[in-house]
């Protein structure tokens, strides 16, 4: 059985209103902070990463994987999930607009690989992805993720 992503997520928020990409990343950062994963500095570092390197964190149509380097602002590894009420533009040529922001914090370069594998497995399945996009509550997201993990 694949790793159950629902158990790895430190916070899930659905139908979040964000007016631009910075606000969307801040919501993902707030989720990490609320879950005791990072400090608020990490949120700013995730935004700076995009300012420095561009919107490369938009890794697939509609999905941004917000993250920054392992640093003192990371207390433990973790993930947050933010689905947006209205998609926002990150300035990515082919994958805009973004409707799902996943915040990722890692203590080193390898510890979270299984979690990323689970994220990739789930989001690369079009049917699961479609269901998750339509999910209206954190409970619904959790149950869809748990189901996806148990059917693999």
């Amino acid at each position: 059985m694949a790793l159950n992503l629902a158990e790895e997520l430190s916070s899930i928020a659905t139908n979040v209103a964000a007016s631009d990409w910075k606000e969307a990343i801040r919501c993902a950062g707030d989720g990490l902070v609320a879950g005791g994963v990072t400090t608020e500095d990490y949120t700013e570092q995730m935004i700076e990463a995009v300012e420095e390197h561009g919107p490369y964190i938009v890794i697939a149509p509609g999905v941004a994987l917000a993250h920054a380097r392992p640093s003192e602002s990371v207390k433990k590894g973790g993930l947050s999930w933010v689905s947006l009420a209205s998609p926002v533009e990150f300035g990515h040529k082919s994958n805009d607009p973004v409707s799902l922001v996943i915040g990722l914090a890692a203590l080193d370069h390898t510890a979270h690989i299984e979690v990323l594998r689970a994220v990739a497995g789930i989001l690369s399945n079009p049917a699961t992805r479609c269901g998750l996009d339509a999910a209206a509550s954190p409970e619904e997201v959790r149950s869809l993720l748990a189901r996806a993990a148990s059917t693999k």
Binding site: A49, E52, Y56, I57, I59, L65, H67, A106, H112, L116
Partner: peptide, 11 residues
């Protein structure tokens, strides 16, 4: 290759 070496490059 990715900017931070923990997310997109690992994927």
């Amino acid at each position: 290759v990715c900017g931070m070496g923990i997310g997109t490059s690992v994927l």
